[in-house]
Amino acid sequence: MSKGVLLVNLGSPDSTDPKDVKKYLDEFLMDERVIDVPYWARTLLVRGIILNTRPKKSAEAYERIWWEEGSPLIVLSERLQAKVSELTSVPIALAMRYGKPSIKSGLQELHEKGVDEVLIFPLYPQFAMATTETILVLAEELRKKHYPQMQFTSVPAFYNHADYIRVLGTSISESLKGVEFDHLLFSYHGVPKRHIRKSDITKSHCKIDGSCCQTPSAAHQFCYRHQCYETTRLVAEYLGLEKGKYSVSFQSRLGFDPWLQPYTDRTIERKGLEGVKNLAIVTPAFVSDCLETLEEIAMEGKEIFEEVGGEKFTVVPCLNDRDDWVRVLSRWIDEWAKQEVTV
């Protein structure tokens, strides 16, 4: 068997043109694991309402963070792929769940290199229906249809892996070196509460009541909320943060359904109103900076904080293509390729 790896990130519009943004949002929001309602309702919501109002506003947001080389998420993912390729012994392809390069094109690239055993590597530390699961489901559909000779292995959520915690903790420590901060906020991408319950393999554990995430259960293998809190706990322990010096929130909610709380925007506002003058924020659900980190947090979050009296707002960059992160990914991949240790 010839082995290869497919790194998969979220994706991005091809440009900041509202037409390209609309095309991207249609693919993204019509995914049944992102908006998990019946097709007719999803179509009515997305194509009847959202796509008639949101693309222009989203295009303006993308324009605020767009780089000369293109989408920050795509550029950073390409840099990561290039660095990992230099350190690993197997071919490394890159794909996006939405937009280009597609998962189909990534698999085709590996196929043309003679690869028939693929490690699907979702670039998400925590498992969620709308991230890891949708990648694996689509990849398997494409395998059955186009590459039946291929075998897939997937990287499980690495939210609590010691290597990941060390690199994330080190990146936070380096970013905040010399920075006096009153509070460190761990902001994770939000998901509807029903996604948590749908991912509960026990069908009974997840009650989102403040205690179930701390109670040992097989459900935690696929519980996004538990994994976010566990990442936070481990990083806080690694950094020696005192309780009360940090907290967790969830960003990017959409629609009117109950989403995981507390919400990031309201938490930022509340911290400012409570007298926090120096707020630091990190976004561990993302390994690459993107619209949600560069615009929603670094720009909108800063504006909210300053409007209520906050003075210093420090955003910790994502891991992006940090050398220590590249070394960790490369080692995990080579260990898999050698069939010595599984990630």
Rank of each mutant, 00 (worst) to 15 (best):
V34N: 06
L80Y: 10
Y124M: 08
L45R: 01
H195G: 04
Q81S: 06
V287M: 05
V115I: 10
E274P: 03
C223R: 09
E78Y: 11
Y188V: 07
M1D: 01
L176D: 10
K23H: 14
W40P: 02
S173A: 05
L254P: 02
T342V: 12
L7W: 05
L119P: 04
L6M: 00
K302L: 09
P122Y: 14
F121D: 13
F222I: 05
S15E: 11
F305M: 09
D289T: 02
K312E: 15
T293A: 07
G190T: 01
D116L: 04
V155Y: 07
L123Q: 12
R327Q: 12
I35R: 05
L87N: 15
T16H: 07
Y24N: 06
N278M: 10
G106I: 10
K104D: 13
S288P: 02
Y164H: 04
K57Q: 04
D324G: 07
F305Q: 05
I49Q: 02
E86P: 00
A93P: 11
E78P: 08
C213F: 13
P262A: 08
K3L: 08
M30W: 05
K193P: 02
E60W: 02
H189W: 07
L184R: 01
E140M: 00
I333V: 15
P258I: 07
E69H: 09
P192W: 03
H226P: 03
F286S: 01
L329Y: 14
I35D: 06
W259A: 06
R64G: 04
Q261L: 11
K23F: 12
T293N: 03
P91M: 10
S89W: 01
V248A: 03
